[in-house]
Nucleic acid binder design. Sequence first.
DNA 1: TTGCTCACG
DNA 2: ACGTACGTGAGCAAC
Length: 880
Amino acid sequence: MNKLIVIDGNSIANRAFYALPLLSNAQGQHTNAVYGFTTMLMKLIEEEKPTHFLVAFDAGKVTFRHKDYKEYKGGRAKTPPELSEQFPMIKQLLEAFAIQQFELEGYEADDIVGTITKMADEQQFPVLVVTGDKDMLQLASQHVTIALTRKGISEMEKYDPEAIKEKYGLTPQQIVDLKGLMGDSSDNIPGIPGVGEKTGLKLLHEYGTVEEVLAHADDLKGKMKEKVKEHAESARMSKELATIFREVPLDFGWESLKYEGYEAASLAEMFTRLEFKSLLEKMNLSTARGEIKEEEVSLITIGPGQLGQLGEILPRIQSIHVEVTGENPHQGAILGIGLAGEDACYFISIDTLKQEAAQPLVKWLEDEAKEKVIYDAHKAQLALHWQGIELRGIRFDVLLAGYLLDPTKNDQTLSGMTDQYGVPAIQSDEHVFGKGAKFKVPEIEVLSEHLCRKALAVHRLQPVMQKHLNELQMDELFYDLELPLSSVLASMELRGVKVDVQELKDFGEELQKKLDEVISHIYELAGTEFNLNSPKQLGEILFDKLGLPVIKKTKTGYSTDAEVLEKLEPYHEIISHILYYRTISKLQSTYVEGLLKEVHTDTGKIHTYYRQTIAATGRLSSQFPNLQNIPIRLEEGRKIRKVFKPSEEGWRILAADYSQIELRILAHISKDEKLIEAFREDRDIHTKTAMDVFGVSAEQVDSEMRRRAKAVNFGIVYGISDYGLSQNLNITRKEAAAFIEQYFAVFQGVRAFMDDIVKQAKKDGYVSTLLHRRRYLPEINASNFNQRSFAERTAMNTPIQGTAADVIKLAMVQLYNRMQKEKVQSRMLLQVHDELVLEVPPNEMDLMERMVRETMENALELAVPLKVEVSSGKDWYEAK
DNA sequence: TTGCTCACG
DNA sequence: ACGTACGTGAGCAAC
């Protein structure tokens, strides 16, 4: 049975674009409309099984309709660039699907569809028209069904003449009459003002056509009569404009529209380029493509019987993959190791690796001179260490490379990278292991093949990624900074921080007493017991029961955050107790109970896991537990720091932090004379800012002025906006704008930097740090104000925050090397963005104070000095 | 899994 | 007119 699908290409692309969030690929091209178009095509092919297929597009800016009515489609917002840039991709996509497409200068897609359906009617050929445009209903007939997209694009509603009758009480032909009366604001078709769908339908049910309505205008009543008479000509013209032209000169017949299905390989290639990973998997093309490209590779399992052959195998190995389960590599088990060279790959289980006869492999893993390429060296190093093996000789890490090439890429998995960098695909871990609760170690045959292929994929990715790094001038950043840093981090984490468990428990008991007291007091004041941890229940108590004013709402209900509660304090005694409860219960659950859970049973220490490939700016993050957010601002919380001790008797904790590193970096990259001068003279930067902005002397700067200047400085670093500053300072937006203007009048270099960096981001699509770290900002040219503004602030902030991250990372690598060279006993323990924490034996205190300060201050030469404050104490609390 | 809240730089 | 300050991770409630 024949069936032709005709798609109104422009209409569907538009629908898809507005229905889906702005996705984009590694090149910063937006792909949401392409994605929506693709899913729709796949669904149609699967469900409708067409024998013939055509996609029609508009062509040319001026159609014949403009000749009759110049304002046609006037006033319509221009197609946003984010959409228009996607049309070439949609056309390529159709080629990959082997679907015919057609456009003709001077005609719209509607007219082409109209002509085809007319042919279909004449020759009784069944057609399904797919569009988002209701006007197309006029084309419905015995042979032609119209599918209209509903909310989003995934759902469709099909209309044949009966369905139209049922819904509107009209024939398909009357759809144009309806539009003649109603008009259409999106096409700037006027119709009769005041006539909408309801009135239009009423008139047509009575009179049938526009012409008849006009002829009987005198029968109408009141205002309607005047309107119809006055706009009769408009109605006639509107009807004409809404009528789809069905005589487009087409020079093809059914034969050329035949649809024979697509070739998986070319579609896979297209999806790979577009980074439609989920679609690749859905169509099972990932494997299809793998089979095509994964040439003769021998998959060999090294069992206990093959260990004797390690001597011949090892010289051929260039890449490895260590499969670690679980999120925390300090606790993770190793499932096995894949090893690969140019023409072969191997698998060895962790049990086999532990046998005596596997020692040559262990020696090889530990040999600095045996160079290895790997995915996630850091994690492998940690997991292997807990198995008694010290991984050395890492020369390339594809995870780290992927992060530098695009730190905001959400898919950092190995299978994601193979797709993205165009090397033979492998199965996703999710496919092999399942995810979350469904995680399961597969049978050994599946596991061994997967790990083999992963090692091989690492090997294949290395030259491609190396080339990309080189092209982006990231060689130094990669080889001299991030790669060595990964080992430094591993050594810090493995050393761990000593925690006094008893002291922490005692602190927890004190907190519990306070909690019990405040909870019962709150219940008393509320007149009922409820779950204090539930914002929902708390909101009901405060705003429904007690009737306190609602300051702010969240999308699910009342907001009860600290900012709101502080404003409510004067209204009710209960509020201050709730604030107190929040503070103490946070300490108890996150910092007492949370930390206790993370103390390692063997070492009595906390071993955090620094993530090097998470933060978009280049910063580190810390997990299991997060040691970068231990309380300090409030005294009650700060006491937590007392339990972090040196691991040896008599040693001390040494903390060194950069003073104002971000503003110093801003001074350097903006070359602002005033800011540079301020730092060269080592001024208190907030006071100096207050003096310059408010035009007063140092003595005249009071605490309020300094506070405001400090907020402005923060705002500058975050990518200033008057709204944000006004929120922070609790002032009006106008006042905030005035502050910013005054600031920029003084610090003109900063203003120029902010303007330039945004301009550059708009031109290049990315911003960079001093060490060439890069962050893409695909939304910098978005038409959506919010998205664009966010990207603009990010453009201002990332070079600053990112360069600060570069600097402290440099300092860490340099300091680690010096400490190795000097063979000190001291150890680096923690990094908290602008601070390093070490443990130091008494006899090394002077040496280390000097070494740390000297290294950090000279990590990178800038136009202003870097200043470091060093302090020490018997615990982290005292080292302030 | 998502949303809210809150700890840090 | 539009409405968020930049970057993170963790605990808890509620779906």
